[in-house]
C-alpha cells in the first residue's frame, strides 16, 4: 500500500454534516438488553432456606435470615454495595427465587443506602 496525502479527509468532511453518534447519556438513554444483569430481586415466598446462594455468592453480598422458628419463612438482606452483579445466585437457586432487573443507575453517595431488605 502506498502513502497518500490526507486519506482520512473525505471521511472527516462527510462526518461534519452527519449527526454525531454520541448518546447524550443523562438526557437520553439507550434501552438495556433483555438479559441485562442489574439489581438482584428476591422473592421471599419461594425461598426454602438452602443457603446455596450464600455460599456461591463471590462477593458475599447475600444474607438469608430465618424469620420465624415454626414456619419456613425467610428474609434476605442484599448488600448491594458489595454485589458484583454476576447473577450466580440466579443460577444457583434451585427454586428460582432470584431474578435480575434492568436498573443500572444505582450510584449513591452513602453506601449504607444500598443495603436492601427483602421480606
Amino acid at each position: 500500500m502506498s502513502l497518500r496525502i490526507a486519506p482520512f479527509l473525505p471521511e472527516l468532511l462527510r462526518s461534519l454534516f452527519k449527526k454525531p453518534v454520541t448518546v447524550r447519556y443523562p438526557f437520553e438513554k439507550t434501552p438495556v438488553p433483555a438479559g441485562f444483569r442489574g439489581n438482584v430481586v428476591f422473592d421471599p415466598a419461594k425461598c426454602i432456606g438452602c443457603n446455596i446462594c450464600v455460599g456461591d455468592c463471590p462477593a458475599e453480598a447475600i444474607e438469608i435470615i430465618r424469620v420465624s422458628e415454626t414456619e419456613k419463612k425467610f428474609k434476605m438482606i442484599l448488600h448491594n454495595d458489595r454485589c458484583i452483579h454476576c447473577a450466580q445466585c440466579v443460577d444457583s437457586c434451585p427454586t428460582k427465587t432470584y431474578r435480575m432487573d434492568g436498573e443500572f443507575e444505582i450510584a449513591v453517595l452513602n453506601r449504607r443506602q444500598l443495603k436492601i431488605e427483602y421480606k
Binding site: 452527519k18 454525531p20 454520541t22 447524550r24
Partner: peptide
C-alpha cells in the same frame, strides 16, 4: 466544534 464534528461527536454542548 469543528474538530468534534469531524470525529462524529458533539463537542462542547
Amino acid at each position: 466544534k469543528l474538530y468534534a464534528r469531524m470525529q462524529n461527536r458533539f463537542g462542547p454542548l
